[in-house]
Design a protein around this nucleic acid. Structure first.
Lengths: 343, 343
DNA sequence: TGTAAATATGCAATCGATTGCGCACAATTC
DNA sequence: GAATTGTGCGCAATCGATTGCATATTTACA
């Protein structure tokens, strides 16, 4: 592969000049620039970013850590990040933690070794120690947390207002006439679930509906957990008349289980999920859900990164961006179709 | 950040020795190795992969080009690649072409500049010129195409047997008693669609069902295309009694449109899709579909890459791996539930 | 015409890790 | 005891691009 030295040799100039010419340095004559460009093209020159990265101390790579890449939510976030990053000539490097703490730690290590210029991450579910992220931040590498975040670190964050989303979802169910509203939640240490639970609770309180702990089930919110959850709810003496799930998968699972048992949705049990995965709109009845603005999360995160890079690590103040989720009402929670327009 | 030179200074040895010690070179005494490791830990040493990459000519990064990252299929492929790659200490760099040729070309350029050790790609829909990929191959950089591939390049490929998948899907519809089977196809230059069309045709032929061009609709297979497609089919004098779609989105769209119009699925129109996106199992009725083995595509691609790396570019013969798709029969195409077990 | 200013380019060090070669010293062999 | 083999480590070049400083050549202006 051709290097700037090869180009230099051809033109009887030095590599310095070639480098400057390629970077459009003002002190290089137009004639030389043109000549360099021409030879570069002829030799099929490809700049070696690795060499430049070593010299500059910048790799122009952003590291992304997600629990898993094959979920529509994270896919969209990644897409958002990549879109903004590319415009500023950054590439993204994706790593999956598989929702495992150990793996997350080693992934952070790997990204540091790869000398990424910044890291954007959403925690693994069992991450409780944040030293590995503290290390990133201490090294002065921009760190932006999204979705599953943690306020104990003085870093930027992009989240949605989970509290609001949950509050609105619950309120919506109440307005539909539901009074025994169950809630599927997850690991309480993760703030998004804590916030969603809080939104649920406060909505109940606002409407003078007593909070019943037997209606709140904690799990990993997978598909199976939704089925199991519904079964547990149906074992209660008094059935719930609605479920607000903190995840899309367990919501759809509950819906499927209801159908299997011949329970009418939404009339016997109304259901609202969280995360606007593609499948939520295709199930029957279509699932009401809280849209998480996934793509915007990505673009916002990337923009914060760019800002931090340009402002400089010293003068940059960590930002916390809270996006407003959108309650999407579909038939799974709509007892009176006349009152609302369907989306 | 600490370098091997810092460690060397602390121990009054040279960087060479430190490097060898860290790489567990046999000519370094155990005592020295231990000492180096100890100081490395104390100084919080992080190897600089960029420096190593420059020196070694290997970045340990695999570049991936997908049309878009936020589709479950590509997400799974990426996941598969990453899983295998990580074990061999490779990282992956994701780029999206947004199904646009120009963008794909510049992405390839970017990956070459980043000096990735290999590229895995699925074409953009409008890619018809393959020079940019030929260039990759000519430079001796392992290139593995998956899903949307092209046999005119002498590179490795991982695909599924689209013909077989389509044949089985169509045959299944025929066995359900369907005789006027429509087909949603896409850009014919892309082999996967050509193959699916071929499978469809040959299945018809095998059962002596005439091929009717008015039942074969070409589009980009997005959600809207599915709705439009159904409308066009219903404009025909004689309605189809089944649809085999080359994509999941347009299949689900057709299903939704049928429901809207009060057309019974599967009894009036049976539907089978392609690509086992999560939502296909959640819609109503659950959608029969051809599973593409997405994760295996990823792992297979990564394994080919590793083999090519170890075997060496000269002695490596491009491989073509054809995975067998799996027809998943669900209710959207099951006119006689007694005869088949549901999945 | 002489000199300061502007222009165009070269020199050489640098980023951090790797590695072929060589040298010293120790262990082993005959 | 001399010769051979083995062990442990240092020297210095290398990967390719970048950049502060120096230098050479022009241009401009008094």
């Amino acid at each position: 592969m051709a290097t700037i030295h090869d180009i230099a040799k051809e033109l009887n100039i030095t590599a310095s000049t070639v480098s400057r010419a390629l970077n459009n340095h003002p002190r290089i004559s137009e004639a030389t620039k043109k000549a360099v460009l021409k030879v570069a093209k002829r030799l099929n020159y490809q700049p070696n970013h690795i060499a430049a990265a070593l010299r500059n101390g910048r790799s122009n790579i952003i590291g992304i850590i997600v629990p898993t890449a094959d979920r529509s939510f994270f896919g969209s976030v990644i897409r958002g990040i990549e879109e903004v990053a590319k415009r500023a000539h950054y590439n993204v490097m994706i790593c999956q933690s598989h929702d495992d703490y150990e793996s997350e730690v080693s992934t952070v290590e790997a990204l540091l070794n790869a000398r990424v210029d910044g890291i954007m991450a959403s925690f693994a579910k069992n991450t409780e120690n944040f030293d590995h992220f503290k290390k990133v931040h201490d090294k002065g590498i921009p760190l932006i947390l999204f979705d599953r975040s943690f306020s104990g670190l003085d870093v930027s964050q992009v989240v949605i207002d989970d509290y609001l989303g949950a509050y609105q979802a619950t309120e919506h169910l109440i307005q539909q006439g539901c009074r025994r509203i169950a809630h599927f939640t997850s690991v309480k240490k993760i703030s998004i679930y804590k916030e969603r639970l809080r939104g649920y609770k406060e909505a109940l309180e606002a409407y003078n509906i007593p909070y019943r702990s037997e209606l709140v089930l904690e799990s990993y919110l997978q598909f199976e957990d939704g089925i199991e959850g519904l079964n547990r709810l149906l074992d209660l003496e008094e059935w719930p008349d609605a479920i607000f799930s903190a995840s899309a998968y367990s919501a759809v699972a509950a819906l499927a289980a209801c159908k299997e048992r011949g329970i009418a949705v939404p009339n016997q049990i109304a259901i609202v999920g969280f995360a606007n995965e593609a499948f939520t709109s295709f199930c029957d009845p279509p699932m009401s859900t809280v849209d998480q603005q996934s793509m915007q999360i990505g673009t916002a995160a990337a923009e914060i990164f760019l800002e931090q890079i340009t402002v400089g690590r010293d003068r940059f103040v960590p930002k916390r961006i809270v996006l407003t989720p959108e309650l999407i009402i579909r038939k799974s929670s709509l007892k009176n179709p006349m009152k609302f327009s369907e989306k």
